[in-house]
Computed example of a mutant assay.
Amino acid sequence: MRKTALVITLLLASSAALADSYTFGNRVVTDGDSIGKLVEVAGKPDLVTPIQNDYGGQIGEKWTYFRDGKTLVFTINPSGKILSITESR
């Protein structure tokens, strides 16, 4: 019984750890959040780059923020949801 509970707890914790997230002050933005929440928490992006498929159709956007010496890139899908968050220096 204890082993089962431990395994379930570890699986739940690892799936939560796979989610991309970034903290702006005391507010958190995670993948799956809307661009409305991102703008509310982080403000307007410093750079918006369209993502195109092989035929030139727009399939999303990359929203870039430059904060505290870091570059944060939020990949946005066409329906306005955050797909991934990438942080680099």
Score class of each variant (00 low, 15 high):
residue 17 A to N: 08
residue 65 Y to D: 03
residue 8 I to M: 09
residue 17 A to T: 07
residue 3 K to A: 09
residue 28 V to E: 12
residue 86 T to S: 12
residue 60 G to C: 13
residue 42 A to N: 08
residue 35 I to C: 07
residue 55 Y to M: 15
residue 76 I to A: 01
residue 38 L to F: 02
residue 4 T to G: 00
residue 19 A to L: 09
residue 68 D to T: 03
residue 83 L to P: 01
residue 85 I to N: 04
residue 7 V to T: 11
residue 69 G to I: 00
residue 4 T to Q: 11
residue 50 P to N: 07
residue 37 K to G: 02
residue 10 L to Q: 09
residue 7 V to I: 14
residue 22 Y to K: 04
residue 82 I to F: 02
residue 10 L to R: 01
residue 33 D to R: 01
residue 14 S to K: 03
residue 35 I to G: 10
residue 63 W to N: 03
residue 60 G to K: 10
residue 69 G to M: 01
residue 12 L to Q: 04
residue 75 T to R: 00
residue 31 D to T: 13
residue 39 V to W: 01
residue 28 V to S: 10
residue 1 M to W: 07
residue 38 L to A: 06
residue 54 D to P: 04
residue 65 Y to L: 10
residue 61 E to N: 11
residue 6 L to E: 13
residue 3 K to Q: 07
residue 7 V to G: 04
residue 87 E to F: 00
residue 3 K to S: 06
residue 60 G to P: 07
residue 53 N to Y: 10
residue 69 G to P: 12
residue 51 I to H: 05
residue 76 I to V: 15
residue 74 F to Q: 01
residue 30 T to Q: 08
residue 2 R to N: 12
residue 88 S to Q: 13
residue 48 V to A: 13
residue 89 R to S: 05
residue 15 S to E: 13
residue 21 S to T: 01
residue 80 G to I: 04
residue 54 D to N: 08
residue 43 G to R: 07
residue 31 D to L: 01
residue 55 Y to T: 15
residue 13 A to S: 15
residue 51 I to Y: 02
residue 17 A to P: 04
residue 62 K to L: 10
residue 13 A to G: 12
residue 73 V to L: 07
residue 17 A to H: 08
residue 27 R to F: 09
residue 36 G to S: 13
residue 19 A to M: 06
residue 2 R to W: 02
residue 47 L to N: 14
residue 46 D to W: 06
residue 73 V to M: 10
residue 66 F to R: 04
residue 73 V to Y: 00
residue 81 K to L: 13
residue 44 K to I: 04
